[in-house]
Write a protein that binds this DNA or RNA. Structure first.
Lengths: 157, 157
DNA sequence: CACGGCGGTTCACAGGGCCGAAACAAGCGG
DNA sequence: CCGCTTGTTTCGGCCCTGTGAACCGCCGTG
């Protein structure tokens, strides 16, 4: 997982994109700008001009926070507890859930990712989420339902 | 919730205590010291000498992470204690209570938000507030009644 | 003091809808 | 032939919402 660097407030738009994608980022705050107030643990900032050492430290902290999150690569889903292999379809579903880790991924997006050419059945998603839950349990992940909205992927308590 | 300030690395011991107590803290890093690598969201640091504005911003961010006014997004209500999913109707009610967090939201406004086309029954609001109370308890929120006036949403004591 | 009204709280119940779980079937590759 | 992946159906249960009713504390009134 990489950490994105961007200028603040110049690249305000890019910040919003990265935030949406849950991408760790370090804001380089211009000398005369006021720093952002953020509660997002995937975001930090540093005042310019900054020592190289300080930038490095903040980047490293962001990276460490990020590796606490699960990662998906080549159909393998990893957490601190281990890994499981995912079939193609369910990997695509998890991909969406991951980009919104800890937040709601709406049914719409999940369906689009899983079945780009239209959903075959009204019930398939539910069934596959059931199967995913079974698979994810051993690596301490769980999927919580938000009725009429979507699903949240998060660490098991 | 307050944020503790301390010097780093001079007050190393105190930092450990605060960490143990999960007390939000801001480390003031001496000019020639190397910054700490932390993943704890209740900790942040700033390089000395620092602008007053920057210290203020970091303190404020730490405070928000700790007390965290609840936030409502996609039918999910979040506090520092966790989150619960809300059904559509109750989400609309909470939306009003949130805009007046800590102050009285009058019945009128709540009714209008919950039932834009007129309230079906004189009792519904009370019932749903009862249900909301149950739901909000696990995330340390409560709803207090102000007779003849309305309701106050606030952190549980 | 007894009484009743008002506002609010809590409970039980019912209809409708969404979701979860299981079981089966089909296809595919090893 | 067997196991894995994916789709389909069915059934049951739980959630959401509304409704009625019992109950309670507060307060004014006779």
């Amino acid at each position: 997982m990489t950490v994105e660097l961007l200028h603040w407030p110049r690249e305000r738009g890019r910040r919003a994109e990265l935030q949406e994608a849950n991408q760790p980022r370090l804001l380089l705050v211009e000398a005369d700008a006021s720093p952002p107030l953020t509660v997002d643990p995937a975001e930090d900032w540093v005042r310019l001009p900054a020592k190289h050492r300080d930038v490095q430290a903040r980047v490293e902290s962001l990276r460490r926070r990020a590796v606490a999150e699960p990662s998906l690569e080549d159909g393998v889903l990893r957490t601190a507890s281990g890994w499981v292999s995912l079939p193609e379809l369910e990997a695509r579903i998890v991909e969406v859930l991951l980009t919104r880790f800890g937040r709601v991924a709406d049914r719409q997006s999940i369906l689009a990712a899983g079945w780009p050419n239209g959903t075959p059945n009204r019930n398939v998603l539910d069934v596959h989420l059931h199967r995913l839950r079974r698979r994810l349990h051993p690596i301490d992940l769980r999927i919580r339902t938000v009725r009429k909205r979507g699903y949240v992927l998060e660490p098991a308590p």
